[in-house]
């Protein structure tokens, strides 16, 4: 199987945290030990989410699909281009990216590490295409996985990289 370079088996998470800041702290600490981000990353991503939220209402794609969020921050805090999946055991409230006065229950995060926005096919666009083009049943199964290796396998196999 061809490895998808947008994912790393070490950088996949399952969290039972109940608020974005706690999730970001858990994930940031691990990403820092993997040298994928620098020590400004946690503050960067946490503040950015509060000022410019990243929740995405997936109902225009399919009504029965749980919502997602795509937290990210400036390239200066990041050492790589990677999607970091975070499955949430219970839905966590995020604000809607395109309508920040609305809150959305979110079940799965595609955290985007991007230190080179000009240099490669748009990661956010690839995430949206994955959601739009995958069967809803497959996405529902993904969003309910609670083992990081299964999440990694499913995403690496099914995420078509441009």
């Amino acid at each position: 199987m061809k490895e998808n370079k947008l994912f790393s088996a070490n950088a996949v998470f399952v969290s039972d945290a109940s608020d974005p800041t706690t999730i970001f702290k858990e994930v940031s600490d691990k990403l820092l030990t993997l040298d994928l981000v620098n020590d400004g990353f946690f503050n960067g991503i946490n503040q950015r989410e509060q000022q410019y939220p990243t929740g995405i209402d997936t109902s225009p794609i399919a009504k029965e699909l749980p919502n997602i969020a795509v937290p990210h921050t400036e390239g200066e805090f990041v050492n790589t281009c990677l999607i970091v999946p975070v499955a949430l055991k219970t839905p966590v409230s995020f604000k809607n990216m395109i309508a920040p006065d609305q809150s959305l229950p979110v079940k799965f995060l595609f955290m985007i590490l991007n230190n080179n926005p000009e240099g490669q096919a748009n990661i956010l666009a690839q995430i949206m295409d994955f959601l739009r083009l995958s069967p809803v049943s497959k996405l529902q199964a993904l969003f309910n996985l609670t083992e990081t290796d299964k999440i990694y396998q499913l995403l690496s196999k099914n995420f078509s990289q441009k």
Binding site: V70, T73, E74
Partner: peptide, 15 residues
């Protein structure tokens, strides 16, 4: 323009 200037704004630019 977007919060981080790396993802949403570039997707909109390209599209």
């Amino acid at each position: 323009a977007c919060g981080a200037g790396v993802n949403s704004s570039h997707q909109i630019k390209d599209a």
